[in-house]
Amino acid sequence: MRPIAKVKDWMKKDLITVKTSMPVPKLVKLLNDEQISGVIVVDYAGDVMGVISALDIFKIFREERSMDGLVAEDIMTPYAVQITPEDTLGDAALVMLEKNIHRLVVTASINQKKPVGIITPVDIIAALVKEGGY
């Protein structure tokens, strides 16, 4: 992978975020309507707090809980990974593999928690193919 390939050049900037207070039934509808397998959860200030995937929703049912009264914050996986637009795609790939996560939320800098993009293995592979990493 060319070291100059940066996260900022390949991340998706159209983000779907939900507030920590979003009711879970509404969240299920959103995932279905948008045909996405996960969303970013942000607090009132717009800072990333967690991520929710379809599996987090299945977990509710495995535990035989009801969706009623649950909000995004109750079921999200807290998000603690730091990746910024200036990091290389190689850095992003290593983080994904080490932490076993497919969706990295990109924030403007390490002191900033507002999401500015999202990067997935598909984006990295697209870069590898296009930039002749392969």
Partner: peptide, 18 residues
């Protein structure tokens, strides 16, 4: 073969091996 498998082999192998 998932996209994750692809990332893994790109991490673990040199271009000639790939």
């Amino acid at each position: 073969i998932t996209t994750f498998d692809i990332l893994r082999i790109f991490r673990d192998h040199a271009k000639e091996e790939l």
